[in-house]
Simulated assay, not measured.
Amino acid sequence: MVNIIQKFIPESQTNQRPGGKMNPEYITVHNTANTNKGADAEMHSRYLLNGAGGRTVGWHFTVDDKEVYQHLPLNEHGWHAGDGGNGTGNRKSIGIEICENEDGDFGKAVSNAVWLIQQLMNEHTISIEKVVTHKHWSGKNCPRRLLDQWTGFKKRLDNSKENTYVPPKQEVKSDKVTTYKGDSIVDYLNSIGKNSSFKARKKYAADYGIKNYKGTAAQNIELLNKMRKGKPASKPKPTYIGKRVESIHNGQLRFYNKASWSDAHVAGYLKKGYGFPTIVSKVKVGKGYQYKVKNSKGATYYVTASSKYIKVE
C-alpha cells in the first residue's frame, strides 16, 4: 500500500493536460529513462507542473520507491503513448511512469507500480491482457528496464483467484431435506454469498435463524434449504446508508483499504472538506467504528465513523 499524492496539472496547460474525456480501457507502463539523482516521482510532478520544458507530454501517475504522484484525473486522457492524437494508447489508456533514479530502489518502485496497477485494474475492470508497454503502441524501447522481463511482471499482476460455482455432484431428495454429497455444498453456499469465508456463511446462518453455526453438514443443509425458500425479512436500513461522509478534521484524515487502524493498511488521506460519496455500512474495528465507503469509481475503503473527525450528510 502506497501513499498517492494528487497534484493535477492545471487545465490551462493544454500541452500537458489536453482535457479530453476518457473511459480507460488500457494501462500503459513506461520507465522514465531518467537515472539522475533526485529524479523521483515528486521531481517529475514538478517537471509537468512547470510545463515539461515546452514538450507536449502528460501522463497519469509517476511511481518511485516511496510514493505515487497523480498528475491527471482518470477520466481525462494524456499524451504519453506516442500513437498520435487519436491513437488508442493516448486516448484510452492510463499512463504510468516508473522512476529509475540512481539514488532510488528500482525494485521497490516496480513493486509499488504493481500495487497501483492492481488497484486500477480492479477499479476500472481492466483485464491483464490490456496492461501493455509503451512499445506496444509506438515501437519505442519503453519501459526499457522491464521489456526483457515483461512476462514475469505480468505474472506479478495476475494474482487473482477465480471463485467459480461448481454445481452439486449428486442430489438426493427426501420429504425432509435435500442432501448434497461431497464438498460441493460448500461451493454452493459460497457462490450464493459470493464470499468463501466461514465468517460469511456464519452470518447468513444467523440471518436465517441458525444459532451457534459451526459449518457441519447438517447445518449446511439446513441453511441451504432455508435460503432456497426465500430471504429473511429485511431489517430497517440505517439512516447513514447511501449518504456522503466528509472530513471535518483540520489535518489529513486517514482512510484505509480494509477495516483496520493499522499504518500498513492506510490507503490515503482526506483533507478537510473532502470525503466519499457513498456509505455502504458501519463496522466495528477494535474499540471504535469505521464506515465502509465507496468512491466515485466504486472502489471500497474504510474511514473513521467518529463525529469528532467526520460528518454525514
Score class of each variant (00 low, 15 high):
6 Q>T: 15
7 K>V: 14
7 K>H: 15
8 F>W: 11
12 S>Q: 09
15 N>C: 04
18 P>K: 00
20 G>Y: 08
26 Y>A: 00
31 N>T: 10
33 A>T: 10
34 N>K: 01
38 G>M: 00
40 D>T: 02
42 E>P: 11
42 E>C: 02
45 S>I: 00
45 S>G: 09
55 R>I: 01
62 T>Q: 01
62 T>Y: 03
63 V>A: 05
77 H>R: 13
78 G>E: 04
86 N>Q: 14
87 G>S: 06
91 R>K: 13
95 G>N: 04
98 I>R: 00
101 N>V: 04
105 D>S: 10
108 K>A: 09
109 A>V: 01
110 V>P: 15
113 A>K: 01
114 V>W: 03
116 L>C: 04
120 L>Q: 07
123 E>H: 11
125 T>C: 13
130 K>N: 15
131 V>F: 10
133 T>A: 00
133 T>C: 05
137 W>D: 03
139 G>C: 08
151 T>P: 15
152 G>W: 03
155 K>A: 12
156 R>C: 10
161 K>S: 13
166 V>D: 06
168 P>D: 07
169 K>A: 10
170 Q>C: 06
171 E>V: 14
172 V>C: 05
174 S>C: 01
176 K>C: 10
181 K>Y: 14
181 K>L: 09
182 G>V: 07
182 G>Q: 03
185 I>T: 10
193 G>N: 09
195 N>Q: 05
197 S>H: 10
198 F>H: 14
203 K>L: 12
211 K>S: 12
217 A>H: 14
220 N>P: 14
221 I>T: 15
222 E>I: 03
223 L>A: 02
225 N>A: 11
227 M>V: 15
228 R>S: 10
230 G>K: 02
231 K>R: 11
232 P>N: 01
234 S>M: 10
235 K>H: 07
236 P>T: 06
237 K>F: 08
237 K>Y: 09
239 T>D: 15
239 T>Q: 10
242 G>Y: 00
243 K>S: 03
244 R>L: 03
247 S>H: 04
248 I>Q: 00
253 L>A: 05
253 L>E: 03
255 F>C: 05
256 Y>T: 06
257 N>C: 09
258 K>Q: 10
259 A>S: 09
262 S>P: 15
266 V>K: 02
267 A>E: 07
267 A>T: 11
269 Y>N: 11
269 Y>S: 09
269 Y>E: 08
271 K>P: 15
271 K>N: 15
275 G>H: 03
276 F>T: 09
277 P>R: 01
278 T>V: 13
278 T>R: 05
279 I>K: 03
284 K>Y: 13
286 G>D: 08
286 G>R: 03
288 G>D: 08
292 K>G: 05
295 N>G: 07
298 G>T: 08
299 A>Q: 06
301 Y>N: 07
304 T>W: 02
305 A>S: 13
313 E>L: 06
